[in-house]
Write a protein that binds this DNA or RNA. Structure first.
Lengths: 97, 97
DNA sequence: ACGATAGGCAAGTGACGGCTTGCCCATCAA
DNA sequence: TTGATGGGCAAGCCGTCACTTGCCTATCGT
């Protein structure tokens, strides 16, 4: 379960996609693709973004809401909240400044 | 900077190493290697663990303190604390239950 | 000094991941 | 109904990554 989240966060492009979704929720594939190209200068194809979204979806970080011929992608930050808590035990001095 | 942290956390074995270090700090290479084999049944060589520790060190998650012919590895949870904060903005409903 | 312990440095291999290409399906406007 | 739009599927290419193997260095005990 959490393994998929770490694997999903391992790629920089996927993290950029999360950045775009946290800025505006419910974007479609072409919107995300256009934003990555224009704002970040990334030259990647539509299928590349589609595969990245599939990885993010299987990790539970993105939920897809289809409507007609559109697929709107919504960010879910739930799996992110307790990711690092595994090593941030309260009895460690680093985690309690 | 944070890219190295995500890359370091991408591997399951490296996350196991962090689990061992959070349980007891200052372990040596052979200790970590023996723990991974006995407790988790992982059959990996000494160099594999050494390379994993190098990745964790370059990510700032592990600090090495050498003393004689020993290398003690100390966990540093600092880079872990604000990893997910990038997407956990306070105005999102998911992050404020 | 000698052997044993703790670790390092390559080079090589196999597999997985990211990306592309090409073709196909579904939905909407005209 | 036709064409255009939004997206999916499958195969293939190539790079990176995890891991091994072999040999080498340094430190400690006796």
């Amino acid at each position: 379960m959490a393994d998929d989240v770490f694997k999903a966060l391992a790629d920089p492009t996927r993290r950029r996609i999360l950045d775009e979704l946290v800025e505006r929720d419910g974007q479609t594939l072409f919107e995300i693709c256009a934003r990555l190209v224009t704002k970040h200068g990334l030259g990647l194809s539509r299928q590349a973004v589609s595969q990245h979204l599939a990885v993010l979806e299987s990790a539970g970080l993105v939920h897809v809401r289809r409507q007609g011929r559109y697929r709107f992608h919504d960010l879910d930050t739930g799996p992110l909240e307790h990711i690092a808590a595994r090593w941030l035990t309260p009895d460690r001095p680093e985690s309690t400044p």
